[in-house]
Computed example of a mutant assay.
Amino acid sequence: MTTLLEEAVRAHGGMDRWASFRTALAALDIGGAIWRLKGQPDMFRGIEVAASLRRQHVAITSRTAGWRGAFTPNLIRIDSHNGHVAEERTSPRASYQGHTQQTEWDRLHALYFTGYALWTYLTIPFLYTFPGFVMEELPAWNENGEVWRRLKVTFPDLIASHSREQISYFGQDGLLRRHDYTVDVMGGATGANYASNYHNVRGVMVPMSRRVFAYDDARRKVDEPLLVSIDFRDIDFRTG
Rank of each mutant, 00 (worst) to 15 (best):
T2S: 15
T2V: 04
T2M: 01
T3H: 02
L4N: 09
L5W: 14
A11V: 06
H12V: 07
D16Y: 02
D16Q: 11
W18M: 11
A19Q: 13
A19C: 12
L25K: 01
A26I: 02
A26R: 02
A27F: 00
D29F: 05
D29L: 06
G31A: 12
I34T: 04
I34S: 00
W35Q: 01
W35C: 00
R36M: 06
L37Q: 13
L37R: 10
P41G: 10
D42V: 08
D42N: 11
F44A: 04
G46S: 07
I47L: 04
E48H: 02
A50C: 03
L53F: 14
R55Y: 13
Q56T: 01
A59C: 06
I60L: 13
T61R: 09
S62A: 08
A65M: 07
G66A: 05
G69T: 11
A70P: 02
T72S: 12
P73D: 06
L75Y: 14
I76E: 02
D79Q: 10
H81W: 08
N82W: 08
V85A: 06
E87Y: 04
R89H: 02
S91L: 07
P92Y: 01
R93M: 04
A94V: 03
S95W: 03
S95P: 00
H99Q: 01
W105I: 10
W105K: 04
H109L: 05
L111H: 12
Y112K: 01
Y112Q: 04
Y112G: 00
Y112H: 14
T114Q: 06
T114V: 14
T114H: 05
T114P: 04
G115K: 03
T120W: 01
Y121E: 07
I124K: 04
P125V: 05
F126T: 03
Y128F: 15
G132E: 07
E136K: 05
E137R: 00
E137T: 04
L138Q: 09
L138S: 00
P139A: 03
A140D: 15
A140S: 14
W141L: 07
E143K: 01
V147H: 05
R150Q: 15
L151V: 06
K152T: 10
V153C: 12
T154F: 03
F155D: 00
I159V: 15
H162E: 09
S163M: 07
E165D: 09
F170P: 13
Q172D: 15
D173C: 07
G174C: 13
L176P: 03
R177H: 15
R177S: 13
R178Q: 11
H179D: 12
V183Q: 05
V183P: 06
V185N: 10
G187W: 06
G187T: 10
G191C: 12
A192M: 13
N193F: 05
N193K: 05
V201D: 02
G203D: 03
M205Q: 13
M208C: 11
R210D: 08
R210K: 09
V212L: 15
F213R: 00
A214C: 03
Y215E: 11
D216E: 15
R219S: 13
R220G: 12
R220N: 14
R220Q: 15
K221Y: 00
K221R: 12
D223S: 09
L226K: 12
L226A: 10
L227M: 15
L227V: 14
S229T: 15
S229Y: 02
S229A: 13
I230V: 15
F232Y: 15
F232S: 08
R233Q: 10
D234Y: 05
I235P: 00
F237K: 06
F237W: 07
T239Q: 06
T239Y: 08
